[in-house]
């Protein structure tokens, strides 16, 4: 019971953080996320775990509306990256999610003293991208699922092996979007839709824009769904291309 209680608490913490990001994305708030207060209070491992679950998207508003993050938020972000290094045998999505967070830290020009890619880092090689070969071999169903998990990598001007793998298979990701909607898996659908917003070669018949609105209508009460939909909307409005 305690385990499931902890899990529910973690989910709640993730949802709160996601809500803050959604608000910032909707408001185009450059200066501080509405949830900075909440971020200030993050100290326990549970809260850091919540940041780890949300991943690089915690700072997404500052990526899409270029602006320096609040120092406190950045500090929590950095601490999270330091606290949860992926194990050598971690799943590729875990390694890539960590890579995305490290990359976001570098984007804001505050490399970690001992973090991957930082001068003098103990594992400079970690700045190198993890392997993404598994995506090329994945079925369209599995590809879409994995990309949805890695939705924080779907940002304008990002260029990494995961983005290149997605670019090679726009029709497969579109199929995965349809599959996720049919299965009422709104989070996966929203993540796939965010990717599709950035890809060329998506079939017109998909009806992506209305599809994302539909996903928001049906699943938008979950802030993690709303975050993906709103991210897609901002990127589409900006006409951003990967």
């Amino acid at each position: 019971m305690e385990q499931s209680g902890t899990s529910a608490l973690l989910q709640g913490a993730v949802q709160d953080l996601a809500s803050d990001v959604v608000s910032a994305l909707r408001g185009g708030d450059h200066l501080r996320m509405s949830g900075t207060g909440a971020v200030d209070e993050i100290e326990g491992s549970l809260d850091l775990a919540a940041v780890r679950v949300l991943g690089a998207d915690l700072l997404l508003p500052h990526v899409l509306f270029p602006s320096p993050p609040d120092p406190a938020a950045l500090a929590v972000f950095r601490k999270t990256v330091e606290t949860f290094p992926p194990r050598a045998d971690a799943a590729p999505t875990v390694k890539w999610s960590h890579w995305a967070m490290s990359r976001t830290l570098r984007r804001f020009d505050t490399p970690l003293s001992g973090a991957p890619g930082a001068p003098g880092a103990s594992f400079e090689d970690e700045a190198a991208e993890p392997d993404a070969g598994w995506l090329d071999e994945a079925t369209w169903q599995a590809l879409t699922h994995q990309l949805a998990v890695l939705a924080p990598l779907a940002v304008p001007a990002e260029d990494c092996a995961v983005v290149r793998a997605a670019r090679r298979r726009p029709v497969d990701v579109a199929r995965g979007f349809v599959r996720a909607v049919r299965r009422r898996d709104w989070q996966q659908a929203a993540g796939a839709g965010r990717w599709l917003t950035l890809l060329d070669g998506v079939p017109d018949t998909l009806g992506l824009e209305a599809g994302l609105d539909f996903v928001e209508l049906m699943g938008g009460n979950d802030p993690r769904v709303a975050l993906q939909v709103q991210a897609a909307r901002v990127m589409r409005t900006a006409g951003a291309l990967v």
Binding site: Q141, V171, A174, R175, V178, R179, R182, T205
Partner: peptide, 13 residues
């Protein structure tokens, strides 16, 4: 063309 693109999803489902 439409069916070639989307039929695999419906079959899967």
């Amino acid at each position: 063309d439409y069916l070639a693109t989307w039929l695999p999803v419906w079959i899967d489902d």
